[in-house]
Simulated assay, not measured.
Amino acid sequence: MTHRFVGVGALTDVPRVAVVIDVMRAFTVAAWAFSRGAERIVLASSEEEALALKAASPGWLALKDGPPAAGFDAVNSPGLMRSADLAGRTVVQKTTAGTVGALAVADAPLVLCASFVVAGATARFLRAEGREPVTFVVTGEDGRADEDLACAEYIGRRITDSDVEAGPYLRRARTSKAAGELADGVRRGYRGVDPDDVELCLEADRFDFVMAARREESLLVLRPLPRAAVDDGGEERRTARR
C-alpha cells in the first residue's frame, strides 16, 4: 500500500484517504474521551467557535489546549480526561495542531484521526479498506514532529505487517521534543498537564476503535467506529466513507 507523510502546510490537494496524527495530545485525548463515553467530538477552528458552539448547545462541553480557561470544561490532557464522566456527551475540541490538521483535510472522502492508542485498530481498518494512497498528516512541528511521524510510520507498517513491534516507534516518541516539553511542564507544575500524560500517549493499541471524522451539516465531527466495523466492515465502515 502506498503512503505519503506530509505536514499541514505541505498539503496541496484533497487526499483520497487522510490519517491525521496528533500523539501529544489531541487524538490521545479524543480516544480517552470516547472511552469515557463521549458520543461525538466536534472539531472547532478556534477557541471562539468552540465557546459559541457550547453556548448554542446546552449540555455540550468545550476542551482546549493550555491551562484551564473561563468557559472551557476540560483541557487537552489524557491524564485528566481518563476520570471524566462523558456518557452520551458531545465534546467540542480545539487544539493547536490536531484539530487544525483534521480541518485541513475535511473534504477528503475518508478522514481518520489517530495516535498510538488507536494505531492498531486504525491499521486494521485501512487494511480492510484497501484504498490508496494513504496520506498521513503529521500535525506537529510543521510535519517534523518525531512522535507523530513515528506513529504514522507504525500505522503504515502495521497495514501490511500486523506483527510489527511498537517498541522502536514508541522509543522515538519518548525522546521527541513534545515529550520533553510535557515532562518539563510537569516539573514546573504547569496547569493543564498531568504527570501521566507522556505515558498515556505512549500506550500502543490501547483502544479497539477507529476515530472517523466527517462533515455533519456545517461541522466536522469525530466519532468512534466499534471493533466490529474495524474488523468486519459493514454499515459503520460504509458510513465513514460518507
Score class of each variant (00 low, 15 high):
residue 95 T to S: 14
residue 95 T to L: 03
residue 96 T to E: 06
residue 97 A to W: 09
residue 98 G to N: 02
residue 98 G to H: 01
residue 101 G to I: 00
residue 102 A to C: 12
residue 103 L to N: 14
residue 103 L to T: 04
residue 103 L to W: 00
residue 104 A to D: 06
residue 105 V to W: 07
residue 105 V to N: 04
residue 105 V to L: 07
residue 106 A to H: 04
residue 107 D to V: 05
residue 107 D to P: 01
residue 107 D to R: 11
residue 108 A to K: 07
residue 109 P to I: 13
residue 109 P to Y: 12
residue 110 L to I: 14
residue 111 V to E: 12
residue 111 V to Q: 09
residue 112 L to A: 12
residue 112 L to Q: 12
residue 112 L to H: 14
residue 112 L to N: 14
residue 113 C to D: 14
residue 113 C to T: 15
residue 114 A to W: 07
residue 115 S to D: 13
residue 116 F to A: 04
residue 117 V to I: 15
residue 117 V to R: 11
residue 117 V to N: 15
residue 117 V to A: 11
residue 120 G to E: 13
residue 121 A to P: 11
residue 121 A to W: 09
residue 122 T to Y: 05
residue 122 T to G: 11
residue 124 R to F: 06
residue 125 F to D: 03
residue 125 F to Q: 11
residue 126 L to V: 05
residue 128 A to Q: 10
residue 132 E to H: 09
residue 134 V to C: 08
residue 134 V to P: 13
residue 135 T to N: 07
residue 136 F to Y: 15
residue 137 V to W: 10
residue 139 T to C: 15
residue 142 D to A: 10
residue 142 D to R: 14
residue 142 D to Q: 10
residue 143 G to Q: 06
residue 143 G to W: 07
residue 144 R to D: 07
residue 144 R to W: 08
residue 145 A to Y: 03
residue 145 A to V: 03
residue 147 E to W: 00
residue 147 E to V: 00
residue 149 L to P: 03
residue 150 A to C: 02
residue 151 C to E: 03
residue 152 A to C: 04
residue 155 I to S: 15
residue 155 I to E: 12
residue 157 R to E: 15
residue 157 R to N: 08
residue 157 R to P: 05
residue 157 R to Q: 13
residue 158 R to G: 06
residue 158 R to I: 05
residue 159 I to K: 08
residue 159 I to A: 07
residue 161 D to Q: 04
residue 162 S to E: 11
residue 163 D to W: 03
residue 163 D to C: 07
residue 163 D to N: 07
residue 164 V to F: 00
residue 166 A to R: 03
residue 167 G to H: 06
residue 167 G to L: 06
residue 167 G to N: 05
residue 168 P to M: 01
residue 168 P to D: 00
residue 169 Y to W: 13
residue 170 L to W: 12
residue 170 L to D: 00
residue 170 L to A: 01
residue 172 R to H: 01
residue 172 R to F: 01
residue 174 R to Y: 00
residue 174 R to E: 14
residue 175 T to R: 13
residue 177 K to M: 11
residue 177 K to L: 13
residue 178 A to P: 02
residue 178 A to H: 15
residue 179 A to G: 07
residue 179 A to W: 00
residue 185 G to E: 06
residue 185 G to L: 02
residue 185 G to Q: 04
residue 185 G to S: 14
residue 186 V to N: 14
residue 186 V to T: 07
residue 187 R to V: 10
residue 188 R to Q: 13
residue 189 G to L: 12
residue 189 G to H: 02
residue 190 Y to Q: 08
residue 191 R to W: 04
residue 193 V to R: 05
residue 193 V to P: 08
residue 194 D to L: 07
residue 195 P to L: 13
residue 196 D to S: 14
residue 197 D to T: 08
residue 197 D to L: 10
residue 197 D to K: 12
residue 200 L to M: 13
residue 201 C to W: 06
residue 202 L to G: 03
residue 203 E to T: 14
residue 203 E to W: 09
residue 203 E to I: 09
residue 204 A to Y: 00
residue 205 D to M: 11
residue 205 D to H: 10
residue 205 D to K: 08
residue 206 R to E: 05
residue 206 R to I: 03
residue 207 F to S: 05
residue 207 F to T: 02
residue 209 F to Q: 01
residue 209 F to N: 01
residue 211 M to Q: 15
residue 212 A to T: 13
residue 212 A to W: 01
residue 212 A to M: 10
residue 213 A to C: 15
residue 214 R to C: 04
residue 215 R to V: 02
residue 215 R to N: 02
residue 215 R to E: 02
residue 216 E to F: 01
residue 218 S to A: 10
residue 218 S to R: 13
residue 218 S to P: 00
residue 218 S to N: 09
residue 219 L to E: 11
residue 220 L to C: 04
residue 221 V to N: 01
